[in-house]
Design a binder for these strands. Structure first.
Length: 278
DNA sequence: CACACAACCTGTCAGC
DNA sequence: TGCTGACAGGTTGTGT
């Protein structure tokens, strides 16, 4: 599930339903996810009043009145679901359950445990290990083709690989890297540093439009729900190339005259249309 | 420093 | 039906 649009969709759901409430209980069912939980994790959260829910890249940030921040990453298979209390049944892989004062309960479920939770403070967030090398937010005002072109300068890795590098640009993963390159008409094999500034400008616009469209559709759902409310996202129906190996791409659909290729780049599947992407 | 790849862990699906 | 291998939305450590 979780690239920027899915994380943003979850963030919004958490923010709307939980802001202003305080944490009444925390159940921590393991000592680690991808990394160990911080010491005194439960003690440091109980009683904290949630002010707002933010996001940086693919990380969800729960900001508390005290200045404390709960950092959550969903990894590959992480889900955050809000529900009304209910009976206390332990479902498989529900590693953390956080109860709020008005009776709502936020559950973190993550079968593969590639996600993480950590704690920090407002004055330490920008220098935090997880964020101090992170690239720009693609949906910020300040992000544009010039910024991306500067990050690409001199780099010989493929443009696809660099789009997935969180120190180049924050929040893109395999799906949205592929879809952004498709919208920009760029071959994913191209050396990033060899692409003209003009084309990189188009790419930056494509990234923003793909992400915006996906957020408006509630993200992409694969074989499970994504939104904090438990509803499905719908962007997977708008994929032009991702997961479409052997099928016509979205752009050629009406002409039926292309076939989406699936290749491996640094161990990850890349989907692209050789007819539309040069 | 830049880059490619293996490893982390579980679930699912195609093929035999 | 059951087994095996490949693959899946991400990140990090290691080796070249």
């Amino acid at each position: 599930m979780p690239e920027l649009p899915e994380v943003e969709t979850v963030r919004l759901g958490l923010h709307k339903r939980l802001s202003g409430q305080a944490i009444s209980f925390v159940k921590q069912r393991r000592r680690d996810l991808r990394i160990p939980f911080p010491s005194k994790f439960v003690e440091n959260l109980v009683g904290q009043q949630l002010v707002k829910v933010g996001r940086r890249g693919k990380y969800i940030l729960l900001h508390f009145l005290s200045g404390r921040i709960l950092i959550i990453h969903l990894g590959m298979s992480g889900r955050l679901i809000i529900c009304d209390g209910g009976p206390d049944q332990s479902v498989a892989h529900e590693h953390v359950v956080i109860g709020f004062t008005e009776g709502l309960v936020m559950t973190y479920r993550d079968p593969r445990r590639f996600g993480l939770m950590s704690l920090t403070r407002e004055n330490e967030i920008s220098s935090h290990q997880l964020f101090n090398r992170m690239g720009p937010e693609p949906l910020d005002q300040s992000f544009n083709g010039q910024v991306l072109a500067k990050a690409f300068r001199g780099r010989r890795a493929s443009v696809k690989n660099l789009l997935m590098d969180q120190s180049i640009i924050a929040g893109l993963g395999n799906i949205y890297a592929c879809e952004s390159l498709f919208r920009a008409g760029i071959d994913p094999h191209l050396e990033a540093g060899s692409i003209s500034v003009r084309r990189i400008g188009r790419l930056s616009k494509s990234i923003q439009s793909v992400l915006s469209d996906a957020i408006n559709a509630g993200g992409s759902s694969l074989r499970d729900y994504v939104q904090a409310s438990g509803e499905m996202g719908y962007f997977q129906h708008q994929w032009n190339v991702y997961g479409r190996a052997g099928l016509p791409c979205g752009g050629c659909n009406n002409q039926g005259s292309c076939s989406v290729k699936q290749i491996k780049q640094s161990g990850r599947s890349t989907y692209w249309c050789p007819r539309k992407q040069k």
